[in-house]
């Protein structure tokens, strides 16, 4: 990765940490183990830890476990080469034991890629269910473990009612369990229940986070999500194609804030509590596309329903993050416009 890309990400981490590093003090001189460690979440966590170590003397050692690390080495070789980072290639489902010095675990192994959910629903479910079980079994053996952070998903809530401004952690929601599309969120729900069972029976200290949508560096623009599609179309000169009438509402968080929030929840989150992680600022896809277009020279054209769409009902997915704000004093260091600009800038820097 070019130094300019590294600089962008390091600046992002500094900006997120400007909210304070003292709350993260329990992490000093400790060992963190991250499953799914070379993915989007793991990479950003590692960037944040690297910043804490380099600029605040935290001396945290991170072990990243993943099935593959090719893309990680390719896009974040500066992290892979660090002495305070160890990469372990292993399938989370086959974990038997963990480094005995591990004090913190962030369990992020799973793919949020809906292409995989559609093509290999059995595999997607299996990684979450059996991977979580394997990690919990291994975690029970650790004598120094201080916290297990389970990364769940904002998708577990199912459809957000249109008249509900934002989804709070207490909303139970509903999923059609007979629908193959529910495999990923149902598995995540089960993983949360499994964590609750281990907490009850084995006295593990476990918090859960439910991430929503993100936009930022390290997100491949080939992912078929609205944010990545719009940015890629804009960078190609447009048009930006919006399906439907653009009234669907989504919110996007910048990943340096995501990493900062995860570390705070890891350290200070209450055991047994779930926390939404995302931006509470929902915007319509029409507005989102317009803001992206504004950030690109020549302002690419935006097209709506170019394929003669049936205009399915607009949907909404916005988290209520007041729990993180009130209990953990967490906020955003990067607003949507800055997130878009920095994402485009990072992707334009090759």
């Amino acid at each position: 990765m070019t130094s300019k890309r590294r600089d962008i990400v390091r600046e992002d981490c500094r900006r997120a940490l400007a909210g304070g590093t003292e709350m993260l003090a329990p992490l000093r001189n400790s060992a963190l183990f991250v499953t799914g460690g070379t993915g989007f979440v793991g990479t950003w966590l590692t960037e944040m830890i690297a910043c804490l170590n380099d600029e605040h003397g935290f001396n945290v050692h991170v072990t990243l476990m993943a099935r593959q690390c090719g893309r990680f080495v390719e896009t974040a070789e500066h992290l892979a080469a660090r002495k305070d980072v160890t990469v372990v290639l292993k399938d989370v489902r086959s974990v038997l034991d963990l480094p005995p010095e591990t004090q913190w675990i962030i369990h992020a192994a799973a793919t949020p890629d809906r292409r995989v959910h559609a093509s290999d629903p059995v595999g997607a479910v299996d990684v979450i269910v059996n991977g979580t079980r394997a990690m919990l079994v291994a975690a029970v053996q650790l004598s120094q473990l201080r916290k297990f952070l389970n990364i769940s998903s904002g998708l577990i809530y199912g459809t957000q009612p249109w008249d509900m401004p934002a989804i709070s952690e207490s909303f139970c929601g509903s999923l059609d369990c007979a629908n193959v599309s529910s495999g990923y969120p149902e598995a995540k729900r089960f993983a949360e229940t499994l964590c609750a069972a281990y907490q009850s029976e084995h006295r593990l200290i476990i918090s859960t986070v439910r991430p929503f949508a993100f936009i930022g560096p390290y997100q491949p623009l080939g992912l078929p999500w609205a944010g990545t599609d719009f940015i890629r179309d804009a960078m190609l000169g447009g048009p930006i194609r919006v399906h439907g009438d653009g009234q669907t509402i989504r919110s996007h968080m910048y990943p340096s804030d995501m990493a900062y929030w995860l570390l705070n929840i890891l350290v200070k989150g209450r055991s047994g509590q779930a926390y939404n992680v995302g931006s509470a600022r929902g915007v319509t896809l029409a507005e989102f596309a317009a803001r992206i277009a504004d950030c690109v020279p020549g302002r690419p054209r935006i097209e709506f329903g170019v394929l003669g769409e049936r205009r399915p009902p607009a949907s909404k997915r916005v988290p209520d993050v007041s729990l993180c704000a009130s209990a953990l004093s967490l906020g955003l260091s990067t607003d949507l416009d800055m997130a878009i600009k920095r994402t485009i800038s990072w992707n334009q820097t090759t």
């Binding site: 292409r115 959910h117 559609a118 093509s119 193959v180 599309s181 078929p224 599609d229 194609r241 399906h243």
Partner: peptide
């Protein structure tokens, strides 16, 4: 429907 959902997930716009 399942096959179409796969295509939709891959990025098919129709």
């Amino acid at each position: 429907l399942n096959e179409c959902r796969k295509m939709e997930s891959y990025g098919a716009e129709a």
